[in-house]
Simulated scan of single mutants.
Amino acid sequence: MIFYESSHSQSPLISRTYGAENPNAVDTDKPVLVMLHGWGLNSGVWHSVIPLLAEHFTVISIDLPGFGTNSRQLPKDYSLAHISEWVSACIPMASIVLGWSMGGLVAQHIALQAPEKVKRLVTVASTPCFEQKADWHGIKPNVLNAFEQQLEADFGKTLARFLAIQALGSPSAKADIKQIQRHVRKFSAPSPVALLAGLQLLSSVDLRHTIASISCPTLRIYGRLDSLVPADGIPLIQALQPDCVSKIIQHAAHAPFISHPREWVELIVEFGT
C-alpha cells in the first residue's frame, strides 16, 4: 500500500493504491479502479472487498473532501462541482470510476465533466437524484431534513441511524452495520462542515437531465431491499440512461459490497476486465 498526494494545487487529497507492482507510476497491466465512498463514512468501508478487487485491478481508494484521511481538506464551496474537481485531480486517465451512494453523484459528475478520466463508470446503490419528487422515487424530504437537524445535536447517533436505514431489509443487517463501523472508525472523524454539506447535496443535486450524456460504458448495481435508492425507481434511471447496464442483488440493501461481497465483486470484474 502506498499513499499518493495529488499534484492539484488546490486539492492535496490523499488516496491509497492497492494491487500495483509500481503504484507510484500506476504502470500495471491491471485496469485502474478508483473507489469513492458515501456520506458520513470513508475508505474503511471497502476493507473486505479490496483484497478481492486487487486480484484483478489496481485499486485507488479516495476519501472525499472532509472525510477520512482528507477530513481537513475542504473546498471553500462544498458543491458537487468543486468536490468532483478535487477528486478528479487524483484520478489517472482512462480509469474505471466507482462511486457508492453519495460517491456515485461525484462519479457521475466526473464522467460528465472530465470524460477523459473515466473509461468506465460504476455506481453502487446510487442515483442521479436522491430526493423523492412527485415523479421520482427516492428519500422523502422530511427524512433528509430530520438528519440535518439531528446532525447538529449528535453526529454519532445520526450516523448510527443512517447506517441502520442503509442496512434495512438485509438478512445480515446487524452484522453489516458492525462491520462498517469497525473499519470506518480506524480513520479520522469527518468534518462537521462536510457532513452537513453532504446531506444538502443529497437533497439538492439532480443529474436526471444530464446522465444521458454520459459517454462511457456504465454499470449500475442496486440492492433490491435498498430503502434509500428504491428498486421501483430503477426503471426510471434506466430510461434516462438506456445504454447503462443495471444489476440488482436480490437480498442486498444499500451496502451490497458488505452483505454480498463476492457476488458484488464478480459483477465488477465481469464489467471491468
Rank of each mutant, 00 (worst) to 15 (best):
P192Y: 07
Q149D: 12
T158N: 08
E85V: 00
E116Y: 08
A125N: 13
Q108K: 11
R185H: 15
A153D: 14
A125E: 08
K157W: 03
V87D: 07
A89D: 01
E116T: 08
K133F: 12
A160N: 15
I177G: 10
V97R: 00
Q150A: 05
E148F: 02
C90I: 03
S101T: 13
A167W: 05
E116N: 15
R182N: 10
R120N: 05
S170T: 02
Q181K: 15
C129Q: 13
E116W: 10
H183A: 07
Q149M: 04
A167T: 05
G104M: 08
S170K: 07
I180G: 09
S188K: 10
F130M: 10
W100G: 05
Q108W: 03
I96P: 01
S188R: 09
I139L: 03
D154Q: 13
A153H: 15
W86P: 09
R182F: 04
A114Y: 04
S95D: 08
K157V: 02
A94D: 07
L159M: 08
D135H: 15
S126R: 10
I96Y: 02
A146F: 01
A146E: 04
F147R: 12
A189G: 09
A164M: 09
A114F: 02
Q150N: 08
G138Q: 05
H109I: 01
P92F: 00
F155K: 05
D135M: 14
G156Q: 11
V124C: 14
A107C: 10
A89K: 03
A189K: 08
A153G: 09
L144M: 11
V184D: 11
P141T: 01
A153Y: 15
G138L: 03
F147V: 01
R120P: 00
T158F: 05
S188N: 11
R120D: 02
R182V: 02
S188H: 09
D154M: 10
R185M: 13
Q181I: 12
D135A: 15
F155M: 01
C90A: 13
S84A: 04
V193A: 05
K178V: 06
I180R: 14
H137G: 05
R161L: 03
V193H: 11
C129H: 13
A111F: 00
S191W: 02
A146W: 00
P92A: 05
G99L: 01
A114E: 02
I91W: 06
N145H: 14
I165P: 06
K117T: 04
A175W: 11
R182E: 07
L151N: 05
S88H: 11
A125D: 09
I91N: 09
W86F: 15
M102H: 11
C90V: 06
A94R: 15
